[in-house]
Design a protein around this nucleic acid. Structure first.
Lengths: 362, 362
DNA sequence: TTGTAAGCGTTATCAG
DNA sequence: CTGATAACGCTTACAA
């Protein structure tokens, strides 16, 4: 029993240091050949039995013998070898901007769950400190069967980087690749409706300057709905800042400094909203008494702040899950045709940061 | 230009639907053989030139020819094939309980960063809805060169599942594998010192019932320091709950219901602390006026709540990064011997949720 | 029903 | 210095 021997070896050493098991002790992985030898058949027969090939017509007896041998030896087919032979890697890449944003962590989580179910591995690629292009090159070198890209601006990437890849986009429409998206336009609309129905007329929006489709749509949905209701946004009420807590804080400070301070603010995402909330707390501005704040995403933390954040829930895990499923379908798909699904519905979560507009200002 | 053709094809279709490029249009990846043909050399020569093998003594002229051909063709070596030949996959697995916890997201982020630097891919394995054992089987099938395991209780796993793997543990000591850890004992100690120095004598701890080493140590460090200072914890002041926001909320409610309510609480992690903070807010208990709260981890959100959370910062990304580096060293290591590093220092972040003990109770 | 042979894209060990 | 040749572990015709 190798593990035990290794443990004994290590136990005899000082606690803080580790002595690895000598090479001779780590057993070479079991191969199909080993199984074949033990079962008394040829190696390809093993492959036929174990790879579930429907064309294989083998005697039940051989089947059983092979399976037993495999079990006894603890045989695991080498996926890389299989991939080489079949021309597929059974691996998916997922490219996200930043795992520190719980939204993307959720997307990754959802994607990995489905991928695992479908027999794919998920290669993590975070564009936080490594260039997307480097990641893409690495994924290409690994011949991943497909890539999920979320909010990394796939359209802005050098087309060559993506050439030949099977891509599914999250929250970014494209004529070139299929994708899944949330109803970003609807999110903005719902936020506007909510604030309007509470009597707010002096409104503001904060979002990033960069051209990320989802953010743009949320903004459009918001401003469009306001316009339709005869409410206009002054340019100062349209704050540009990074889509982070810090950005939200900055933006809110600017809004609070306006001569005619807005009473209702829609933030492009929850991180910004949390920053905004914080800026209000710092400035001693009552929420929702003086200012109502609406976020977007519904990350878990939205419910931990006090008051709890009113926000629009975006099904992050579901987005990731669907993207992975879509890729999987497209890959083992006999019918290679994949339809881009309708935008996933978003839902308003009315919580503690939104309330009636202050009467003296309504 | 394939991409353009594909785009044109798709453009002619309805917006919501996607028509994939016919197989004939997606180019077979270029192989070393293609490069060899174009450079007028044998295929193995290409390998020699491009794989940076130091033993290779080739004429500079051939070298140049091969490199040029490779560049012109956009050649990328197939990592799976290389892995097959070299008996390594150049892939690392990372097994974490839950990406929804920003702490683990950070660990993964750090690990992926250095793995990318070192030329390894990172296979994501989240034990949230998939059994660790399934993940480990999958990683074995892929012949990953190593695995990073964080807080999944590696010691409790069936040893066979891990047999033969190169493992680095995060925050879990083991005689069997090397690992990196934060100074969990120190974290508890620092928390205790902080609260004691603020005059608190009626103290409490909340943490999970499950036997996760880090949490245990934080607890031990805390209670041990208190004991040394002559302060004892009543059993009711030792709350067991899940290490989540919800768990923290429950635990805090229980603490607030005590006849002699504690004035200072140390929470096993920030999520619990945030829950505790929230429970206080709900119950109208002033923080830090009536109760001081200290968390652990210093997740980003610790600074978004009001008042900001006093907590012990654990270098999550650094833990992930070191684990990956350690694995990498151990793998391409000529000197296969790897030392488990000393625990990473933790640092107290005094913020808004801790203050002097109320005078009437001190 | 099963074994043989060829090949997937590399690397590594040899002769030439 | 360079080019065959044989692995690596598996799949898939094609024979037997």
């Amino acid at each position: 029993m190798v593990p035990t021997r290794a443990a004994t070896l290590a136990n005899s050493c000082a606690n803080t240091y580790y002595h690895p098991v000598p090479d001779s002790l780590v057993p070479r992985p079991v191969t199909a050949r080993d199984v074949a030898a033990r079962a008394g058949v040829s190696q390809p027969t093993v492959s036929l039995v174990l790879s579930g090939n429907p064309t294989a017509r083998l005697s039940p007896e051989t089947r059983a013998r092979v399976k037993r041998a495999a079990r006894e030896l603890g045989y695991r087919p080498n996926v890389a070898a299989r991939g080489l032979a079949r021309g597929r890697s059974y691996a998916l890449g997922i490219l996200v901007p930043d795992l520190g944003n719980p939204f993307f962590a959720d997307v990754a989580s959802g994607a990995q769950r489905v991928a695992a179910e479908e027999g794919y591995a998920v290669l993590l690629a975070e564009a936080r400190e490594v260039e997307p292009s480097r990641h893409l090159e690495a994924l290409r070198a690994r011949r991943v069967d497909g890539i999920i890209i979320d909010a990394v601006g796939a359209s802005d990437l050098d087309p060559d980087l993506l050439a030949g890849f099977n891509v599914v986009l999250i929250d970014e429409p494209s004529t070139r690749w299929p994708g899944v998206a949330s109803d970003a336009l609807g999110a903005g609309r719902v936020a506007a409706d909510h604030l309007l129905s509470l009597g707010h007329r002096r409104l503001a929006f904060m979002g990033p300057a960069i051209d990320v489709h989802t953010f743009r749509q949320r903004e459009r949905g918001f401003t469009g709905t306001l316009r339709a209701a005869g409410v206009t946004l002054s340019s100062a009420a349209l704050q540009r800042a990074r889509p982070t807590v810090g950005g939200g804080q900055d933006a809110m400070r600017a809004l609070l400094a306006m001569p005619e301070r807005p009473t209702g603010v829609f933030c492009a995402n929850d991180l910004m909203a949390l920053g905004a909330l914080k800026a209000c707390a710092r400035a001693g501005v009552a929420v929702p008494g003086a200012v109502s704040i609406v976020g977007c995403d519904d990350v878990e933390l939205a419910r931990v702040v006090t008051p709890e954040l009113t926000t629009i829930a975006i099904p992050a895990r579901e987005l990731g899950a669907r993207a992975a499923r879509m890729l999987a379908r497209q890959l083992d798909g006999t019918g290679k045709r994949v339809a881009g699904s309708r935008p996933l519905p978003v839902t308003l979560k009315v919580r503690g940061t939104s309330g009636p507009a202050p009467k003296d200002l309504a």
